[in-house]
């Protein structure tokens, strides 16, 4: 599948990246290279091989259902540029 510049623009929009024309061309050639490497990998016969969900050969450790965190609101609100009434503020979101 050959990518075009408009695909790059679409992916950049989804990722909220603002790319200039030169950056878009650069991204196109890099991603095209990655995809051709994937094409090469897909030529390998993987019949009978279980798909890998993670690079580590291990399984998820479980946590007990216990509350371990305490209220750190005052500290954490200090990290934000704008807060009021215990809330983080962002520019108005319109639905």
């Amino acid at each position: 599948m050959a990518l075009e510049l408009k695909d790059i623009a679409y992916i950049a929009h989804l990722a909220r990246l603002q790319l200039g024309a030169a950056e878009q061309s650069e991204a196109l050639s890099r991603i095209t290279n990655i995809l051709s490497m994937i094409d090469q990998m897909q030529a390998v016969d993987t019949a009978g091989v279980e798909p890998l969900a993670h690079g580590f050969d291990a399984s998820q450790r479980l946590r007990d259902d216990v509350v371990t965190e305490t209220n750190q609101r005052d500290l954490l609100l200090k990290l934000a540029p704008s807060v009021d009434q215990g809330l983080f503020l962002v520019p108005k979101v319109l639905e």
């Binding site: 704008s82 009021d84 809330l87 983080f88 503020l89 962002v90 520019p91 108005k92």
Partner: peptide, 8 residues
């Protein structure tokens, strides 16, 4: 809650 902001 706020005129120009959204509270989170």
């Amino acid at each position: 809650l706020f005129p120009n902001d959204t509270g989170i």
